[in-house]
Amino acid sequence: MDYSLLKQFVAVTATVGLYSVLYKENKFYRFWEHVFLGLASGWALVILWTDVLKSGWYEKMLGASAADGNTAVMGYWPYMFLLPIGLMAYTVFNKKHNWLSRIPIGIILGLYSGQQFSAWMTYYGPLLNDSMKPIVPNTAEFFHPATVVPGTVYVSDALTNLIALLTVISVLTYFLFSFDVKSKVLHATSTTGRWLLMIGFGAIFGSTVMMRFTLLIDRMYFIWIEFVKQGLLHMK
């Protein structure tokens, strides 16, 4: 028996229940909120065992014999020391022994810090490199011709690069000279930086609103097209 329509009905009821808070706080909303929280927590616990602890630690520690086409794996007993180290994190709840929790936290911090050296350069290196662009054109042509000559900086390119450079400098000035500056040039640059930041935040806010609307549209699509039109009315 196909339960897809029943499953869709439950999902539609959950959607309506969660949206009902827009009218006012109510028990129907609370019920579905708790159902969602319970399901998400339960699912996370199962995945924690199946995808993380069982395959990543337990089975590697004990090993496995060949079966069902899978090869045998030798057990790696030193993995057993990971259990007490992990359990030390829970001593944070005990006043007398909570110092032990600093050991696993220290290990994690050390690993993370070590990674960050290379991560910083991988992340910022290309961005820094890309911000160094030519601002002097080497041709009198304004726009790109039909065939772009490699290495040519057209006037339009130079202007674009100049805007990018001015943005970088003014925004950096805004953050570096956050105290009361006497120089009029610095003050003007800093103010320009603030304005450009505001424009940037406006663009991000616009994207955020657009995304939220899309999520609403998706839910409406699910209710009216997937459930009502295609599911109940069998229309294409």
């Binding site: 290309p126 890309d130 940037g200 991000i204 994207s207 955020t208 995304m211 899309t214």
Partner: peptide
Amino acid sequence: GVMVPENTSYYASGQLKGLCGGV
């Protein structure tokens, strides 16, 4: 969609070969 402004700079710097953002 909300992540497009941030990721556009990674695309512009060549860190990403392509970018598909939002609807």
